[in-house]
Simulated assay, not measured.
Amino acid sequence: MISRAYVGHATDADMKGFIRQYPAAAGTRLDDCQTCHRGGVRGKDAEREYSPCGYCHLLVYPNPKYATGVPKTMADTLNAYGLEYKKAGRAFEAFEAIAGLDSDGDGHRNGAEIADLRNPGDPDSRPGLPPAPTIVLGWDELKKLPVQSQLMLMNTTKEATDDYVVYKGVRVIDLLASAKVYLIGITGITVFAPDGYSIDYDLKDINEPFPKGVFYAEPRSFEGSERAFVKYPENLPPGVKDRTKIPTVPWLLLAYERDGLPLDPSSYEKGTGRLTGEGPFRLVKPQRDIRGDRMKPGRPDRSQMSKMYEDGWDFVPGMDHNAGACIRGACVIRINPMPEGYEEYDWKNGWPLIGEKKVVIYGRGVR
């Protein structure tokens, strides 16, 4: 049976051999790159490559933003179990040869961990530690929840344009309520992208509305020129006027539509390590602080990389560039603080959830 994680590596004998040795692992989380590979090095700037897939890809597609912790050989990407497998000969027989070892030093032999569907290369994954309870919501279930539609500015830092966007989805506070997760004792949430990238949102982000944004039509006059820097939806919601507050009160939102169309599925862009596409779900955070320019509060501004035109629309460092606080391909939500005595949900590889159009919720208060 072919591993789901190696669909792009059809000739990978290692994973085929692992499934041959441990057929019960087929289709589980061990049927995955991270059984033998790890993410970035802790304490190094490459630590931001949380997914083993992204970390391995640095060998073929180097990313110049990383200076430390960058792998130089495939062996540099292996976890403790992967290193033992390589040392034992990297052949089918090696799996049985290392079954009695405790590669990750957690007190459990590799074979016992694999039989219990625990990761033999991760000391935080071991038999006896119950997996965190989870709630899984699919596309159809999420679309039955109360709908929030909001026009908002996605203010970027380095991208060529800022965007006024009409996002449609479910408020995070309604999402948690539907999952019967109550806010007592909760400090916030962590939302994960399919490659393991994450952003934390505090209780205020969840529980309170954001300030109404202000709509600016003037940048439309720059369209077709080198000064252009704002994109607008084809149709604006009723009541939206230039230099006035947008009527709808915005919230922290799990969006599934943009300007009336489903979000494009997220995918991994080789060569840059970036995610392209937004969906099927994107966690969007409106601007919390619209005071960056007292004369034009909540305005869009040009890219940090753009030349200065001194026309009132240039980049301002103090602006709330909220686009960077949003998560493309949001697929896993952890409710913080994580309760003790549980193994975390495997958020390092959320790609199967993207294809299945599902969101996993786990952590405090999830039953």
Rank of each mutant, 00 (worst) to 15 (best):
M338A: 15
S303K: 02
C331M: 06
K348T: 11
M338K: 05
A325W: 07
P300S: 05
G312A: 14
P339S: 09
R299N: 07
Q304K: 09
G298L: 03
L353Y: 03
W347K: 07
M338G: 07
A330R: 00
G350K: 00
N336A: 14
N336S: 09
G329L: 06
A330I: 04
Y345D: 07
L353M: 11
G329A: 09
G329Q: 01
K307W: 11
M338N: 07
P317D: 09
G341S: 11
G298W: 00
P300G: 05
P352T: 03
K358S: 13
P317F: 13
Y342D: 08
N322A: 12
Y342W: 12
M338H: 11
I354R: 00
G350R: 01
E343T: 11
S303D: 02
E344V: 14
A325S: 13
P317N: 09
A330H: 01
I354N: 00
V316W: 02
I354K: 01
E310H: 14
N322T: 04
C326Y: 02
R328K: 14
G341E: 03
C331H: 03
W347Y: 15
A323K: 06
L353C: 04
H321R: 07
N322D: 03
A325G: 09
R334G: 09
R299D: 02
G355T: 05
Y345E: 08
E340I: 08
Y309R: 07
D301Q: 04
Y342T: 10
